[in-house]
């Protein structure tokens, strides 16, 4: 989780990722930042994020993104 927070803070330094739970709905993450984030996640955690998983619900908070990573790791 710490690694993920580091990645997120590097991409969007102005956002408090421990608190915000509407990253997509509140427009903190735009589509380009999501692309950067996916690249970082795939590199760092050795998973493949399929297009079907790119829904606001999976990216609205650091916790939700972490749950997605864990689920993808499990499926692998």
């Amino acid at each position: 989780m710490e690694k993920l927070i580091d990645i997120l803070e590097e991409l969007q330094p102005e956002v408090d990722f421990q608190e915000v739970d509407n990253l997509v709905d509140g427009r903190y993450l735009d589509s380009l930042t999501i692309l950067s984030l996916i690249s970082e996640i795939e590199d760092e955690f050795d998973v493949q994020v399929p297009t079907v998983e790119i829904i606001p619900d999976n990216f609205n908070s650091a916790q939700k993104i972490w749950e997605l990573i864990e689920r993808l790791q499990e499926e692998n």
């Binding site: 589509s31 692309l35 996916i38 994020v49 790119i54």
Partner: peptide, 11 residues
């Protein structure tokens, strides 16, 4: 376009 073109193409 975002769901069916943008993300599938970029990924």
């Amino acid at each position: 376009f975002k769901d069916y073109i943008f993300y599938p193409v970029s990924l």
